[in-house]
Amino acid sequence: MAVLLTRTIIAVDLKDIKAIIDLMKKNSVSEFELEKPDFKIRLKRGNNGAGPAPGEEPPPAMTYVQPPVLVAPPPMPSVPPITNELEIKSPMIGTFYRAPPPDSAPYIEVGMEVNRETVVCIIEAMKVMNEIKAEAKGVITQVLVENARPVEFGQSLFKLRPS
């Protein structure tokens, strides 16, 4: 079902729209139009994604997905990822360190090959030192965080191209 709204829907309650759609379905009504001084809505039932009938002026359409989800942006065509790179993420909030002691060389650099067990960095949270492993075999393509910066839970730390 495609629902086309000509103006902003901010002023209307989504529940009301859903009730109208349900009524349309129940009574096999294919089109519904309502106009008020500051608001106009036109609902049209048909095939999913069906556009306006030929000859009709195409309204500045917004696609109304499904209640109770608020008006979603038009669905993006699913673009296949350019690479199948993986991201190594932080399992905790903490401070990101690229090297074990401050003066030693970083665990890894861009271009280095790693395997599942390779330690790539340390995350420190209140003196708990967490060695982060690559968890995948591949080549590091990007370091996303600067040394000694705070990181959030689930934040991406490195990009890795699996091999």
């Binding site: 993420k89 399992p91 905790m92 003196k127 708990v128 030192m129 967490n130 060695e131 968890e135 689930g154």
Partner: peptide
């Protein structure tokens, strides 16, 4: 002084 070392997956602690 206390220094802890943690081994964990993204959602679970393996050991401390």
């Amino acid at each position: 002084g206390i220094l802890s070392e943690l081994k964990a997956e993204l959602d679970q602690i393996r050991y401390v």
